[in-house]
């Protein structure tokens, strides 16, 4: 197996490109009052940063804003990140 280590093999890792959340300019904030838990934001998130309980994983959310745009109840607001 010693030869195997020299092959150009990559290991599956969460955050293979680092903490992509640091790219974010706007952060999604879910208004739980307005939210009716339809799950569309979770369905359309390209980075799977929203889990089944509809919590946003801010370590990996790139802040694209698709969730806020697609939310039928307009329950997600994009808030500018403090630097």
């Amino acid at each position: 197996m010693s030869g195997r280590a020299r092959l150009a093999l990559s290991k599956p890792t969460t955050g293979a490109a680092g903490r992509t959340g640091s790219w974010r300019v706007f952060r999604p904030v879910i208004d739980t009052e307005k939210c009716n838990q339809c799950g569309l934001c979770q369905m359309y998130c390209p980075d799977a940063a929203i889990d089944e309980e509809l919590n946003v994983d801010l370590n990996f959310c790139k802040g694209c804003g698709i969730c806020a745009n697609e939310c039928p109840k307009k329950a997600i607001e994009m808030v500018r990140e403090e630097t």
Partner: peptide, 19 residues
């Protein structure tokens, strides 16, 4: 597909690859 890809924000190719 795991979190933390180097796709652009709002990339729909990574969305379709997920599905």
């Amino acid at each position: 597909m795991l979190k933390g890809t180097s796709a652009c924000a709002g990339c729909s190719s990574s969305l379709s690859l997920r599905y």
